[in-house]
Amino acid sequence: MTTIDAAHRLPRPEDLPPHERHVHQPHWRTKEAEFDAAKFGMWLFLATEVLLFSGMFCAYAVFRMLHPDAWTNGSHYLDWKWGGLNTIVLLVSSFTMAMSIHNAQKNQQGWLKFNLCFTILCALAFVFIKFTFEYTPKWSGWFFFLDPALHHHVDSGRTALGGLFHFVEGYGGKRPGSLFAYPFAESPYEPIWWSVYYISTGIHALHVLIGVGLISWLLWRAQRRHFGPGHYTAVEIVGLYWHIVDMIWIFLFPLLYLIH
């Protein structure tokens, strides 16, 4: 029996922040076992993600072998500067994600939220760059006014969104498969290259957006002080997910942008 005095010196459970109140689900013996299992499960899931992308890498390898010209010609239209910028953006976001796990472990609630926010912003920046500077001009010929590729071709005169976008004749149409309509293609098989490009980067971008959702959820919970040294499972496993999304881009970037 605990004495009344001793009981009074401890905070009542309902006064503790949620992360200190956390109890494991009934079928686990300990909190640690539950945490390990969650991590193990996430690793397995990440293995399935890698295998999903490996299908695309396989298609990439097969068609690059079959149609090397289409690959060099197609890759020629990708700007390594945008790809490189996005690589840096993702690397930074991986770092802030790792930091947020550290913050949770050290109970730095303010930094935790800051780092999660920063990660979300990086992810959004990645998608923004991808869409405005890469997909849109290639698909339809509409260039964002900041795009360096535009400087030689500002003569068309067609603008949209108050001059934010300029249309450049003959530059769009780099689309996958039968949607391909680029007038100056040098290899008859270039449509296949664009199929591989759009699908692999598209599925990757979708993963980035899912990451935005997951990290926003973390932020929402962090706001409610759900995470702390005693409990940070969700931060840890979303972190793992985020690193794999980053890793996949690290492979996609050189394979797509840096071939000659």
């Binding site: 289409a70 949607l179 449509p191 296949i192 199929s195």
Partner: peptide, 17 residues
């Protein structure tokens, strides 16, 4: 995607297999 947009990955006419 092949079915909806004819991306050509499995279509020999577009260089697919």
């Amino acid at each position: 995607f092949e079915r909806l947009f004819h991306i050509g990955i499995f279509d020999p006419a577009l260089g697919g297999d």
